[in-house]
Design a protein around this nucleic acid. Sequence first.
DNA 1: TCGCTACAGTTATACTATATAACTAATTTG
DNA 2: CAAATTAGTTATATAGTATAACTGTAGCGA
Lengths: 146, 146
Amino acid sequence: MGRRIIINYSVLSDAVGYRLRRAQLAVFQDFGESFAAEGLRPADFSVVLIIKHNPGLKQSEVAEALGIQRANFVAIVDGLEARDLVERRKSETDRRVQALFLTPLGEQFAENMLTTWKAHEDRMIEKLGGPEARDELIRLVNRLAE
Amino acid sequence: MGRRIIINYSVLSDAVGYRLRRAQLAVFQDFGESFAAEGLRPADFSVVLIIKHNPGLKQSEVAEALGIQRANFVAIVDGLEARDLVERRKSETDRRVQALFLTPLGEQFAENMLTTWKAHEDRMIEKLGGPEARDELIRLVNRLAE
DNA sequence: TCGCTACAGTTATACTATATAACTAATTTG
DNA sequence: CAAATTAGTTATATAGTATAACTGTAGCGA
């Protein structure tokens, strides 16, 4: 049997990076379980959301807004396009540019996606101790991310 | 030139997972820059720290304490052993077990490591707005990580 | 004691995320 | 117009993480 061990975590106990990382993994874990059926990853979620609220943006603009390298963004859009959620439309005025839009199916998908997400987010808020605690957390982590 | 674009981030603006992720990346970025010379990754840091404060733990115990799978932990210890920072000692009473210790060089390294880490952590605390803000953040993220 | 089971560490492997360089096609600029 | 720049793409490399299977060792019950 495993010994009953008490571990001294030293500065890890309240190291910002370490605790932030563990928390983020827990939140993404819950996110992943929430969207397991849809096979939707956090990046996919954010991309659909940005396109829904900013139709017609260029690929590179969406990528940059989310901090995703444009090279890595290609496969993400490929995946969403293959699922008929997102559409690339070549710009008339600049034929290098791919403007991004949700398809009708994508719009519908986004609605359900947001419902699922809301349930996930509500669990996180409950864990935190309510909306005020959530607001306080967001305020604090935003300072870290500049 | 890139158009001047205002992006609607919708619920991403205060989504716990998204903001937590961005903040964690920023913190790890600073950590990485702090330890670029030593080539020390966050995982290495935490392993050295745990061994320093809990000498003689089994590999699997250190791995579990840090949420690292034992299979992936092997390469981490290999690396630290190759740098003569950590020593595997076969247990006398159970020859399957590798007990972990810092070498004398490892002890010395840990001291310098903690000095570097402290500077990094102080930057994070300053960004947050002081030690109280840090404490509040730790309190909140700990709730998310259970 | 023998044989089964469990365990520690390891190896191999795969998948995801991320980063960089180089390429194509189109556009802009000197 | 030629050169430089830009958008998107492809190829590739690395890091992190996850699982299965293997080796050697220990413990346990018949």
